[in-house]
Simulated assay, not measured.
Amino acid sequence: MIEFNVKSVFFASVLAAILLGCNSGEPSPSSRSKNLQKFVAVTQIVEHPSLDATRQGIQDELAAAGLKAGETLKWEWESAQGNPSTAAQIANKFVGENPDVIVAIATPSAQASVAVARNIPVIFSAVTDPIGAKLVNNLEKPGGLVTGVTDLSPINKQLDLIQEITPTVKRLGVIYNSGEANSVSLVDLLKIEATKRGLTVVETTANRSSDVATSARSLVGKVEAIYIPTDNTIVSALESVVQVGFDNDIPVYAGDTDSVKRGAMAGLSFNYYDVGRQTGKLVLQVLNGENPGDIPVKSVEELQLLINQKSAKEMGIKIPEFVLKKSHSNY
């Protein structure tokens, strides 16, 4: 009889504790941590050094604020491998997962995300022309749930560099993907500014990475230099353009500095890791409760000049000493 009463008291105590826990309104420590963990989903149109550096900068900026991927932050990242249709699939997948913020790196991924993320903030990065890409209507007051960082290339300063190193160039070749809105905007701007300087821009397009080598070879005999804009398709196959430059003594200039490390002769642009860090700051603002539509679109001010002297020699060019003195790094 006593044994029965002891067991009854024990089970009653356990039941009471369970009921008390259920009615307290306080989640367990593990579930509380899980519920409060922020979720950032990152979509990137293709993998190449500039965009990868952007992504790393975002991740490091969040980590510096205490949001470490896999620990205090749920971080999901996917690449569309250069395919806009895949970018759309990724965007729809992320919307279904309902993250706190979607970060879209490069124009096609940003367009895909903004098109479907009606109630989820979207922060874009490395987008050349946010207005032309129809991501926002106003850079100062984006409105809605969208803002980000633009990487509009400093075309005038890049043309200055081309004319400083190769002053005899009159015909400048440019290879781009006509399906990328950012590239079309850049080439239009390039033609306007080049015309003012008496330069002729010779265009050729490649809408797939596998077409880049053929497009580069089509410029041989038509141009004295080649300029590669911040076009994701072309940059992903940069080495094939560089090889054409080597084989035909044609200097290859890049619209991004990471391409200089891969063989382009010279590049004046932003450090894309810094672009990522700046993007990460916007993500933190939104995670802390700010409305992205009230945050102005940011641009990058600081430029870096990189020179690849080995490539210059292979392309038959001697870099002037005054240009070398201005460069941040030589390869």
Rank of each mutant, 00 (worst) to 15 (best):
I228G: 08
I228H: 03
P229M: 02
T230R: 05
N232T: 06
N232A: 08
T233Y: 06
I234S: 09
I234W: 11
I234T: 15
V235A: 15
V235G: 08
S236T: 13
S236A: 15
A237W: 06
A237P: 03
A237S: 12
A237N: 07
E239P: 02
S240R: 10
V241Q: 11
V241P: 08
V241K: 11
V241S: 09
V242E: 02
Q243Y: 02
Q243W: 01
V244I: 14
V244E: 06
V244W: 12
G245R: 07
F246K: 13
F246H: 14
F246R: 14
D247F: 07
D247Y: 05
Y253G: 07
A254T: 01
G255Y: 03
D256V: 15
D256M: 13
T257S: 00
D258P: 05
D258K: 03
D258G: 07
S259L: 10
R262N: 14
G263P: 07
A264R: 14
G267R: 12
G267E: 09
L268D: 14
L268T: 12
F270M: 09
F270D: 08
N271P: 01
Y272G: 08
D274S: 02
V275P: 03
V275D: 08
R277Q: 14
R277L: 11
R277A: 11
T279M: 02
T279H: 00
G280N: 07
G280I: 01
G280Q: 05
K281G: 05
K281V: 04
K281L: 02
V283P: 09
L284D: 06
Q285M: 12
Q285T: 02
N288I: 01
N288E: 08
N288L: 03
N288F: 01
N288Y: 04
G289R: 01
E290D: 03
E290M: 05
E290A: 10
N291D: 15
N291E: 13
N291Q: 14
N291A: 09
N291P: 10
P292A: 10
P292M: 08
G293D: 00
D294Y: 08
D294R: 13
I295V: 02
P296L: 13
P296N: 12
V297N: 04
K298Q: 15
K298C: 00
S299E: 15
S299G: 13
S299D: 11
S299N: 11
V300R: 04
E301C: 00
E302R: 12
L303F: 01
L303Q: 03
L303H: 01
Q304L: 06
L305H: 04
L306F: 15
I307P: 04
I307H: 06
I307A: 01
N308M: 08
Q309I: 12
K310S: 14
K310L: 06
A312C: 10
A312S: 11
A312D: 10
A312R: 08
A312W: 10
G316E: 03
G316F: 00
